[in-house]
Design a protein around this nucleic acid. Structure first.
Lengths: 136, 136
DNA sequence: ATATTTGCAAACGTTTTGCATAGTG
DNA sequence: CACTATGCAAAACGTTTGCAAATAT
């Protein structure tokens, strides 16, 4: 957390109330959140920044490599990655659930980097389908 | 290919020129294509359907389980899945390259289905980073 | 003091919709 | 013939931008 603040200051960035709270929200959730979900979480904490400010902050965090951005079903989701994990996405109710990571992936990532001369920064693995409540 | 036509007719759907060509285009490419890319490919074949028609056709194919839809960097991509494969996405030039699949994934998919009572219809695995041309 | 971040309003690109017309089976 | 798919125009959606005012360092 302090590591994040240091990283931001290092490049001339500033720790504002909005950024501090967004980082806190993402850090606590430790799972994907959309811009709208972040906005809702901030509201509960008494902050109502403009949508553009939220998106700017999230884009900023993604550019800094602090957060990761993933597009799912037409909207952008963000998270501050901690332990490696992936997601189950219900195509019916749109719920997103975190699942334990495939440990093979880390190994494969390295193979790809070598074989394809591709520098992997992050990955995105989602299983789509019907969740417990929506199937049948 | 005929299997696809049969599947469409089975539910009262109709084989129109636009649908036939979109299926052909997706089938030949056998990799992710955006709505705009599909439109360009159709243009080369002498067809200029409205954007809405293209999106309706692609959504239709996805609903029928014939094509798969994936959101990458804010736009929707479609493909008719043949052999399992995944993608390398360059965050700089936005290029998308197909890669051989991690065969472990199929196994993990089954485990998840059982453990989480989640019915997996398809998955999406992308490695993000810098391609050969864009790194450095 | 200076450079960065914010709010506002407006633009953007992609995807979706309503409705009358054209086309398929 | 009955029903499905298309074109058009317009809206919806999430995201991005320009600029002047506010804020962090």
């Amino acid at each position: 957390m302090d590591t994040i603040y240091r990283k931001i200051r290092q490049t001339g960035g500033r720790i504002t109330a909005v950024r501090r709270e967004i980082i806190a929200v993402l850090h606590r959730s430790s799972c994907l959140m959309s811009g709208a979900e972040v906005a809702a979480a901030l509201k509960k904490r008494g902050l109502r920044p403009d949508r553009s400010t939220i998106f700017r902050a999230l884009s900023f965090l993604a550019e800094q490599g602090i957060a990761v951005r993933k597009s799912i079903a037409g909207t952008d989701y963000f998270e501050i990655p901690r332990r490696r994990h992936d997601h189950l996405v219900c195509v019916h109710c749109k719920s997103i659930e975190k699942i334990a990571v495939n440990s093979e992936l880390a190994r494969q990532e390295r193979k790809i980097a070598a074989r394809k001369k591709f520098e992997v920064t992050h990955h995105s693995l989602e299983f789509y389908g019907y969740c417990k409540n929506c199937r049948g």
